[in-house]
Design a protein around this nucleic acid. Sequence first.
RNA 1: UGGGGCGUAGCCAAGCGGUAAGGCAGCGGGUUUUGAUCCCGUCAUGCGUAGGUUCGAAUCCUACCGCCCCAGCCA
Length: 557
Amino acid sequence: MTSESKPAHFLQNIIREDLAEGRVSRLATRFPPEPNGYLHIGHAKSICLNFGLAEEFGGVCNLRFDDTNPAKEEEEYVDSIKRDVTWLGFRWAGDIKYTSDYFDQLHDWALHLIREGKAYVCDLSPEDARHYRGTLKEPGKNSPYRDRSVDENLELFEKMKNGEFEEGQCSLRAKIDMAAPNINLRDPVIYRIKKMAHHQTGGKWCIYPSYDFAHGQSDAIEGISHSICTLEFEDHRPLYDWFIENLPVPAQPRQYEFARLNLNYTVVSKRKLKQLVDEGLVDGWDDPRMPTLSGQRRRGVTPAAIRNFCEMIGVTRSDSVVDVGMLDYSIRDDLDKNAPRAMCVLEPLKVTLKNYPEGKREVLSAPGHPVRDDLPARELPFTGTVYIEKADFREEANKKYKRLVLGKKVRLRNAYVIQAEDVVKNDAGEIVEVICSVDLDTLGENPADGVKPKGVIHWVSADENLDCEVRLYDRLFDDPAPDAGGKNFLEHVNPDNLQVLSGCKAEIGLAKAEPEKGYQFERQGYFCRDSHYGSADKPVFNRTIGLRDSWAKEQNK
RNA sequence: UGGGGCGUAGCCAAGCGGUAAGGCAGCGGGUUUUGAUCCCGUCAUGCGUAGGUUCGAAUCCUACCGCCCCAGCCA
């Protein structure tokens, strides 16, 4: 099944048995977002689950926009959702579906319930309805309109449909049980008046079905066998089943619930994300720090990383908070295997190679990847002046420091071994240049004396390089649970979530880097060109994630 | 006793009566022209708590405890 012999989760077990025992002939699932916002990492779990199950069991998965509330939905969101699902690498079965495609059928079924004496038009205002509903511990009481005749209900519902009532003046309710311990069964509203245009049906309707009345029936219409949703809908299942049992639907879908994804150091609530955007704390919904799929994509996170992450966190019914470290691992894991290598000096320090022939220029070759020989080699111009990282030189240091030290040797990655001979400082006493000697016999060879330098540092020619800007992102929040309890998440925004570095020097090949395409800047991390900022000759690179850094860990001890 | 769920390591998660998988993180070591990757080792006498049944319990029973969800004409 899951080839790596990873144990099956409860939904896989249920489906396998349903298929084996013939209760279901073909698996059909659906991913049913309401087009009222952007998809985020939490949605990815549901997408991977629904589409993944369909792939695994040879079934199908529909993409259905659950668009029963025109007040909250917009076409813009359906477009971004389609883009994000596609980006993750999934294909929905047939055409895109909309719950609004079924408004006629749903309306017929509402009529059916009325004729059966199982639905009635209620004139209670929303506030009064709330009082009649009772509380968590006390039963509700029947609406005074509960016993209207079928004919009267038919007539009133027709008037609702024709726009003869104002919003909130009345609603259509299922007649179930006002004393039910499950509040969802206390005569739930199944149609309400909303005098507004719908992004799909335009001005055709002024009454719209509720989620509860639309969802299961839409599943039945589409032949969905397993309707998978999150835990908070658990209490709706009896209602879901009630409609399926009391309506002449063409299929008998079943609802199953799983625990939604929670990630520490992360906030995904639409309202909160919007606040970050509105208050200018981030650059927009696709800011690379956002947990939205569009933000993660712009940051350089790959679809495979997200899919593997969803695979590794599992699917259960227990609430949990996954450590973002797992997502980080998944991102590094995928990028390490697939990202071409490159060199980029973030904070340049000039190094002059005093014995490198005056005016000489050569082109060195470097592998595109340490083990992937299918990735093309790179050409690196080498000249007598190069830049290295400021942090890679010290006048003196203990033996733990494996970089360039005055009087000591280090290897320039993919090039020669050099030795620091002297430093040049400015009036402020800052090191502005290092004078080195270069051992011209060390290209691809160890030094003749047989002593291998312990350190290897990255570099770029000072004469031929790509000037660029680099944006180093860190986690958006510095608190593991920024919005837990009564906390104000805005007070836990990490002040160091972005560091912008300009004047960075990258190897020239990076000039043709494409947005979203990841590179490993060796010894630093994974980066991709930003899709919004930068120009052809001066690109902006986003750091997707840093390399694991045991040196930093060592220093913090 | 309002109803519905869930409790296995720092985190995620297998396990379904035969003596605690795996992954992430951590720790120790090896390889390495990336302080990366990779490789090896290590990490729960313990499964929310207390009783009980049993030759044997994370698994069964009882009682407690803790956490989550539900009172939109939102989804």
